[in-house]
Computed example of a mutant assay.
Amino acid sequence: MSEGEAEQERAGYRRSAGSARGEARRLELLERVTDDLGTNGLVDFSLRRAARAAGTTHKVLLYYFDGPEDLLTQAVLRLRTRRIDRSMAAAAEDSASRTLAGRVRAMWPVLVGEEAWVLDQAIGLAMYDSARYAQLAREASKQYLPSLLSILPGEWSARRKHEVAEMILGVLRGFLVEWRTSGDGDGIEAGFAALDRALTHEEAAAD
């Protein structure tokens, strides 16, 4: 490709990036980078590695994303969305999910399953370098809370739903840290027993 043709191609990317076709292309690239992230993790992530995974060049990625940190953040958010979708599906399908405690229990194998280690890396990165990656941690709550709110009884008040959803999120995060750092399955199971009782009590109590 000549220099003139390359410049025309770059100009075309700039014009199309905000169009419906450009958005479709951006999402296609993001899906490929997300797949790579889920397999290889965050260590050694770079724009060039992302370009190889997406089957394009790093210059093309820069037309669709605001640099490597933006691309990494969006890929992590996409990976987390996949995890949330799977956990909600598990909660809906599990035979025990007729109770709130059962629905929360059904989510756990997904939370510690496929790609979990990568999302744990993302939270660690946000804690290690909050100036650059704090959004990775902040966005986690924004992503999880709507799904947790959706499994709570519809007749509850908005305030009560928010309180219980925040409790579930905080406890599950604690379990995830314990699972990742110590692998104490017995301790986590004991914690789940207490969480089950708390949720059973909440579900039985009048609003």
Rank of each mutant, 00 (worst) to 15 (best):
T39M: 08
T34N: 07
R197Y: 00
S141Y: 11
L72M: 13
Q143K: 11
L119G: 12
R160L: 13
A50D: 00
W117S: 03
V112K: 07
E189W: 11
G187S: 05
T200Q: 03
G55I: 09
F65N: 15
M167F: 10
L47S: 00
T73V: 04
P109W: 14
F65Y: 15
R132T: 09
R105K: 11
M1T: 04
L77R: 10
S182I: 03
I188H: 10
A50V: 00
Y63V: 01
T56Q: 09
E115Q: 15
R52T: 04
E189V: 13
L148Q: 05
S182E: 05
A90M: 11
G183W: 15
G170S: 15
L119K: 13
V110F: 10
I123C: 06
G102M: 07
V118I: 08
W117I: 13
G124I: 09
S2C: 10
R132V: 05
L119T: 11
R26H: 04
L152S: 11
W108I: 07
V171A: 04
L79D: 09
A205Y: 02
V118W: 13
L195Y: 06
W117M: 08
A204N: 02
G4C: 07
A96L: 08
D120Y: 12
A53D: 02
N40G: 06
E28K: 14
L195D: 02
E178W: 09
M167K: 08
D186R: 14
L152H: 14
S182V: 05
R21C: 00
A126T: 07
L152Y: 11
P68E: 07
A92S: 15
E189T: 13
R48G: 02
A190C: 07
G174F: 13
E23M: 03
G185F: 12
V104Y: 05
L169D: 06
D85H: 09
L37C: 10
D85Y: 06
R82Q: 06
I168T: 08
A190V: 04
A75C: 10
Y13C: 01
R98Q: 03
I188D: 07
G183M: 12
Y144M: 08
L27D: 08
W108A: 05
T99Q: 01
A116M: 13
L172T: 10
P109E: 02
A140C: 07
F175Q: 03
F175K: 07
E31G: 07
V104M: 01
E203M: 01
V164L: 14
T34G: 07
S2N: 11
E5C: 09
E155I: 09
A50G: 01
S16N: 08
L149G: 09
A91S: 13
D35C: 02
A126G: 09
Y128P: 01
R49M: 02
A194D: 05
Y128D: 03
T56D: 12
A20M: 00
R159N: 10
R80V: 03
G102R: 08
G102E: 06
S87P: 01
D207F: 08
D196A: 00
L29A: 03
E93R: 14
A116Y: 15
P68N: 10
G4Y: 10
L125K: 11
E93V: 10
S130V: 14
E178Q: 12
V60C: 08
A50N: 01
G170R: 15
L30W: 03
D120I: 12
Y64E: 13
L42E: 00
V177Y: 15
M167T: 13
F175L: 11
A89F: 06
A193H: 02
R103P: 01
A6W: 03
